[in-house]
Design a protein around this nucleic acid. Sequence first.
DNA 1: GAGGCGATTGGCT
DNA 2: GCCAATCGCCTCG
Length: 184
Amino acid sequence: MSLAKFLDRDAAIVAPALLGTTLLVDGVGGLIVETEAYHPDDPASHSFRGPTPRNGAMFAGPGHVYVYRSYGIHWCINFVCRNASAVLIRALEPTDGIDLMRARRGLDEVRALCSGPGKLCAALAVTGEFDGLMLEAPPFAIALPRRSAIAAIGPRIGITKAADRPWRFGVKGSRYLSKPFPKA
DNA sequence: GAGGCGATTGGCT
DNA sequence: GCCAATCGCCTCG
């Protein structure tokens, strides 16, 4: 399946299917092991209240990248899906450019390099300048998995609205998650 | 126009 | 476990 077609579905479908995908930015990155889905009718979503200058990329159509600043300090990256839904990339298992990521993060421990949405953006040098770019073109490189990894499912993290929706997905047993999943 | 808060992280208690 | 850092958007007046 082409990347464009893959992303032109609801975020709740795309988010678990993305597990095991390779994400590289300028050749640096790893395997996606944790994601979350956000919907326009979801009070926790940035697209819930319609377009603003900040969230415009979420309304630009499937295949775009939405990068926003979190708590005024960190950057977080989303893949835009159908109908202003989006998938937040929460954690990677580092595979490529590990020494560069170590230098950017000022940290040796591979396990913690990309174990959180703000961390992985720092490790991959993703900033607001990437907001609105197409995922299909450089500096991005995406390799979809042959088969999606087995997903653990749980409530999303760090939000106060609609916190009960089970739209967080992770690779079962991965040591690179931002937080463990509640035991099923 | 002012005040509050968030899809977070790292450091200190 | 708690708390500060720091910026854009929302809400209210």
